[in-house]
Structure formats: C-alpha cells, structure tokens
C-alpha cells in the first residue's frame, strides 16, 4: 500500500491469525473429482479405479487431519512494490506477475492448508501392502483435499474481511507464476511457528507433504478475477489453461 492512504485504512486487528479444522462434508471431493485428478478427464476411469475410489472415499474421515488458517498482515506495515511485497523487515519476492495482481490491495492474507500426516501414512500402508494403485488413489485424494481446504479457507477469509468492506484477489503460491519456492522461508517467517501443524524444512519443503501455502490480496477495491494464465509466461505449468475462466470455477 502507499504511504498517503495509510491513515484511512482500517486495521483488521481482531482477525489477525485464525485457524480451522474444515469439516470434511463441506469439502467438495466426490468420485468424479478424484477421477479427474487421476487424469481421467472425460470420466473414462477403468472399473477397478472407480471401485477403489468408491471404497476409499468413505474411509477418508478416519485418516485426514485437515487444518487450515490465515494471517492478515497489518495494513500499515505492508508495502506492495513492483517486484515484491514487504511487511516490516520481511520481503516476499513474488515477482511482477503477482504484484501486478495485488497492487490495489490494502494488505495480504497469508494462508496455509494441510491434509495432515494421516493421509500420507495411509497411502504408504497401502503401497507397502502391495496395493500401489490404491495407495496412489489415496495420495491423489489427499492432494485434492488440500486444494479443497484452501478453497474453503478462502470463503472464511472473505467472510472475515466482509464487515470492513474488503474483498479478495485470487490466490498466489510460491512455486507458481514466477514466485520461487525458496521464498517459503520468508513467507513462513510471517506465521506463528508450527502454524496448523506445518513446518518447513531447510529445503523449503512443507511437512506434512500434503500442504499448500500462498497469499491473497485483501482490500476494498480488489476483485477476484478468473485465473489469468495470460499474466504468466511459464509455458509448461500444469495449471496453464487456454481459456482463463476455466480453472477456479471448475470444481
């Protein structure tokens, strides 16, 4: 944010850090979504795969340990520059692709979500017992859950800033749109230690592995547009879509 407007921006002090355990039934992960995530985009998964999904999905509840949470940085300490966003002494080197999307934000919300260790353990058990396919289905379900938990969290963030008239931009994560994964260290330095049970290794890997991190711009004048692959030139990104509307609204 820019200096002159600092005084008129409300400080959302009461919603600094919040964390949740999203209830499984509120996450939209059904058989078709899992089939899609496994690669069968037109619903052509072979029978044993469909049978595995049908058998495993109802058992997710006893393995998943979903947690997610966010922190809205104090607006007065946030400066959105051309290449980075800084908060106090910490600078997040997101690159211009992302900062352009955040530029009218008053602050940013940092978020994380995780499916916990339980899903990984379950997948490993199945694989060790010789059922690689089932193990892979569980691994894919876990990835889908983390994505869904992030979407769920986005609604919570939106609800918490609504009273002060703010809205949200899209989500942006280290490792996407030119933002280096190594910046995870800076991002995590702005969160309480062990937030939502997630820790970061020196190689910037989040543990549990089934975790996601990122930022969302918040402010009175910001809009959540369609996911814009046209803003980024990473040609082989798996999320690249020709039609920009497709991704976020899909699930």
């Amino acid at each position: 944010m820019i200096f002159e407007t600092r005084t008129v921006i409300p400080e959302p002090a009461s919603i600094d850090v919040e964390s949740f355990s999203p209830p499984l039934p509120e996450l939209l992960l059904d058989r078709r979504a899992v089939e899609h995530d496994l690669g069968y985009h037109s619903g052509t998964a072979p029978e044993p795969v469909i049978a595995a999904i049908n058998e495993l999905l109802p058992r997710v509840a006893s393995h998943a340990q979903l947690q997610c949470g966010f922190r809205i940085l104090p607006p007065s300490s946030v400066v959105i520059g051309p290449e980075s966003v800084s908060c106090g002494s910490v600078s997040l080197s997101m690159g211009s692709v992302i900062t352009k999307q955040l530029k009218s934000s008053s602050s940013i919300a940092i978020y994380v979500s995780t499916a916990g260790h339980g899903m990984e353990r379950w997948a490993n058990q199945l694989m060790a017992a010789g059922d690689m396919m089932q193990g892979f289905v569980v691994d894919t379900i876990a990835s889908g859950l983390v994505e869904q938990a992030s979407l769920w969290l986005e609604k919570k963030i939106a609800a918490s800033v609504k009273p002060i008239g703010w809205s949200l931009t899209n989500r942006y994560s280290p490792g996407y749109c030119d933002w280096p994964v190594s910046d995870q260290h800076n991002l995590f330095s702005l969160l309480p230690a062990g937030f939502c049970g997630i820790t970061l290794t020196s190689s910037a890997l989040m543990v549990p592995v089934k975790s996601l991190s990122g930022v969302i711009g918040v402010g009175s004048g910001v809009k959540r547009g369609a996911y814009q692959c046209s803003i980024c030139d990473l040609k082989d990104c798996y999320r690249r879509r020709e039609e920009p509307e497709e991704l976020e609204e899909q699930r």
Binding site: L38, G39, Y40, A45, P46, P48, V49, A52, G130, D131, M132, M133, F136, V137
Partner: peptide, 14 residues
C-alpha cells in the same frame, strides 16, 4: 501418449 494414466500403469505393474 496419455492414452492411459498412473493407476493403469500401477495395475499393469502389479
């Protein structure tokens, strides 16, 4: 060639 996906490969490997 993306005619089959990871689960199919794993079933074949089994």
């Amino acid at each position: 060639n993306k005619e089959i996906f990871v689960p199919d490969v794993l079933m074949a490997a089994k």
